[in-house]
Simulated assay, not measured.
Amino acid sequence: MSALPKYQPQFRVMSYEDLIAVCRIEPTIYSHPWTYGNFKDSLDSGYCAWVMEMSGEIIGYALVMMVLDEAHLLNISVAQAHQGQGLGRALLGHMIEISRHRLAANMFLEVRESNTKAIALYETMGFCEMGIRRHYYPTKSGREDAVLMGVAL
């Protein structure tokens, strides 16, 4: 079980001013990071986007696309230096609560097949494997399958 952080994170809606900080974190944890344009397009589209802060520093973020009564978790990230402290679980829990508040009945996500830590986290939060999306993610040498997961809210 992950240790609890010494200080509790604060959550707030992501703003355009946050994108520079978010885009500093993104390439340090992903081989194929989202771009500034991807994040801006998500905000322009009205996606549910939140940042997680500790001591005024953005250390994580998540984006959910709402479609009718479904929430699709598009991106959830915690800065490398803050991983392993239960913050990903806290951020995911926050996004689940926001999705419930918006009357979502289910939440879905895709995760790289090789990302066993994330898969384990999702499973402890009630997500179940629903299928495989073949060749979904780019890699340095080709493509990687995604595990499609979902949870009833």
Rank of each mutant, 00 (worst) to 15 (best):
E144W: 10
I20G: 08
D44E: 05
L19K: 04
D69Q: 00
E113D: 13
M95F: 05
V147S: 08
Y122C: 07
T28D: 15
L103F: 10
H94K: 09
V22F: 11
V64L: 02
I76S: 06
Y7T: 13
G142H: 14
D44M: 02
G93I: 09
L19E: 02
V51L: 09
G46V: 02
Q83F: 07
T139K: 14
R134P: 05
G88W: 04
L74W: 04
F108W: 15
A81S: 11
E97K: 09
M1E: 15
M1L: 09
Y137P: 13
M130F: 07
Y47S: 00
Y47P: 00
K6F: 02
E57R: 14
Y36P: 00
I20Y: 11
S77K: 06
C128V: 09
A81L: 05
I59N: 07
A118K: 04
R100N: 03
F127T: 06
L91Q: 11
G46T: 00
K6N: 07
A152G: 11
G88K: 05
Y136S: 01
R100V: 08
A90E: 10
E123W: 02
L148C: 04
T124C: 13
P9S: 08
S55A: 10
A104T: 00
V147K: 14
V147L: 07
V147N: 11
V111A: 06
A49Y: 06
S99W: 04
E129G: 08
V22Y: 12
A90Y: 11
G46R: 01
A71W: 00
E17V: 04
A81Y: 04
H94S: 00
C48W: 06
